[in-house]
């Protein structure tokens, strides 16, 4: 540590540089001068919406090399005026946290652990099981003999955290397949 010097005393520096509020030259340093926001290197900034609650705060997503490097509030939004709550402010971690599961996992009947399987294989297995379950619990008529044309073998839960366009395809596909037990968080 350097020896104490009156010249380094903050009040002295502030008075000498006529920096009345201590927010000007008296608090600047080479380190400060060279600091750059990480958003400066972004290739792109896109407008988005916070994925947590239903206030619908605007987000700006900063991207570099196909990676999200920063997320902040969008000051243009008339709803949020640039603000985010702790969850919205933490949403960069939602994207980049190391524990995020990026590969398909499969747990066989009675197995004690996961195994990794190929995405293609998993999709085929799910499609096969979908048709089998549909068949197993197909109902042409109800107890009164009225046509119902449905299957009770498949159910789905979820929709409040995903997009309108996605909910639309889910409802359309399941209804066309005869599956009626489609639900989401709005019921809870």
């Amino acid at each position: 540590m350097s020896r104490f010097s009156m010249l380094g005393w903050p009040v002295f520096r502030q008075t000498k540089s006529k920096d009345k509020y201590g927010r000007g030259p008296s608090v600047e340093s080479p380190k400060y001068e060279n600091m750059r926001p990480r958003t400066e290197d972004a290739d792109d900034v896109v407008q988005s919406v916070c994925p947590y609650c239903a206030v619908g705060c605007g987000q700006r997503i900063y991207v570099k090399d196909n990676e999200v490097i920063h997320i902040e509030g969008d000051p243009d939004s008339p709803i949020s005026r640039g603000r985010l709550c702790p969850k919205g402010a933490a949403s960069e971690q939602l994207v980049n946290t190391p524990s995020r599961q990026k590969t398909v996992l499969y747990r066989a009947p009675r197995a004690t652990d996961w195994e990794e399987i190929e995405l293609e294989k998993a999709m085929d297995m799910i499609a096969d099981r979908f048709l089998e379950a549909r068949e197993n619990h197909w109902e042409d008529y109800d107890e009164e003999g009225t046509p119902v044309n449905r299957t009770m073998g498949i159910a789905s839960l979820g929709g409040a955290t995903i997009d309108n366009e996605e909910n639309y395809l889910i409802k359309k596909l399941f209804s066309a397949a005869g599956a009626v037990q489609i639900e989401n968080q709005a019921r809870i």
Partner: peptide, 26 residues
């Protein structure tokens, strides 16, 4: 665990930054 017959598929999902689409807020 050894007696549970349920097969479980974990399919990783894309998040809000990784797809385009709409949310309808409150």
């Amino acid at each position: 665990t050894e007696e549970i017959d349920t097969e479980v598929f974990f399919m990783p999902a894309a998040n809000h930054t990784e797809k385009a689409g709409t949310f309808t807020q409150t």
